[in-house]
């Protein structure tokens, strides 16, 4: 995927959160955004996925002008996974997936159901397809919501700490699911606290601190950080 960020500035209530962020990537497949709490990672992800528009600056994802494009067009091309699963509680796992396919992506009910069951089978969730979210474990629900974003075959997926609401065991199964996305050549940008996982799944790392990208580069920068801040961060997290 191509990412092009041009002088992005964003603030909440007059407080600058992102400051002059610029970045040009031509061939990243899986980008991990890491950094301490409050660095602005989620904010940057929300801007790239058009949940909000920046105060100033340009954002291009695969040459789509994110700020200028219509939200409804953009959301047909990208997927977003939140910290908590966000499944609709009154619908079964299967219906959560097929509803979007039918209503937003104009698939017939047969096509939608076939596609959803296919994916649920690949991700070993098919036996849970008729359960409501409340009957699923946190990990299962999160995986269903990942599949819900994946089902529309997006150009890019954005994931914001998809495991932070889960305990370590459930975290593992969700991380496995994300690794599988990678095997299927799905391109994504993920915010994560799991550095070990970032190393495994990502080919590009953005390290953020205080609303800036302090260091970025191929995943190997985690082994040989150039900046003192990333070095400290890696040591601190790996402890």
């Amino acid at each position: 995927m191509k990412i092009n960020l041009n002088n992005i500035n964003h603030s909440y209530h007059g407080k600058a959160i992102l400051q002059d962020i610029s970045l040009k990537l031509e061939h990243a497949e899986a980008i991990a955004i890491i950094g301490p709490s409050g660095a602005g990672k989620s904010t940057l992800l929300r801007l790239m996925s058009k949940i909000e528009n920046p105060d100033a600056g340009e954002i291009f994802v695969n040459d789509i002008d994110v700020v200028l494009t219509e939200a409804k067009d953009y959301y047909k091309k990208v997927g977003f996974v939140f910290q908590s699963h966000n499944l609709f509680p009154h619908l079964t796992a299967l219906r959560n997936i097929t509803l979007v396919l039918e209503k937003v992506h104009n698939k017939t009910p047969q096509e939608a159901t076939k596609l959803a069951i296919d994916l649920l089978t690949q991700f070993e969730l098919v036996e849970h397809m008729n359960k409501k979210p409340i009957q699923l474990s946190g990990g299962q629900a999160q995986r269903v919501s990942i599949i819900r974003s994946l089902a529309i075959n997006p150009e890019v997926m954005f994931l914001d700490e998809p495991t932070s609401a889960l305990d370590p065991i459930l975290t593992r199964e969700v991380l496995r699911t994300i690794l599988k996305l990678r095997e299927k050549n799905m391109r994504f940008v993920i915010v994560t606290h799991e550095l070990g996982f970032a190393k495994k799944v990502a080919d590009y790392i953005l390290y953020m601190e205080d609303g800036r990208i302090v260091e970025h580069g191929p995943t190997s920068i985690l082994e040989n950080p150039k900046t003192e801040s990333l070095k400290e961060f890696v040591e601190f997290v790996m402890e």
């Binding site: 949940i51 959301y75 966000n86 609709f88 209503k103 937003v104």
Partner: peptide, 13 residues
């Protein structure tokens, strides 16, 4: 609020 956010990013009218 989470559901409204999901509604938004899934592209429902």
């Amino acid at each position: 609020a989470n559901q409204y956010q999901a509604i938004q990013v899934l592209g429902f009218s």
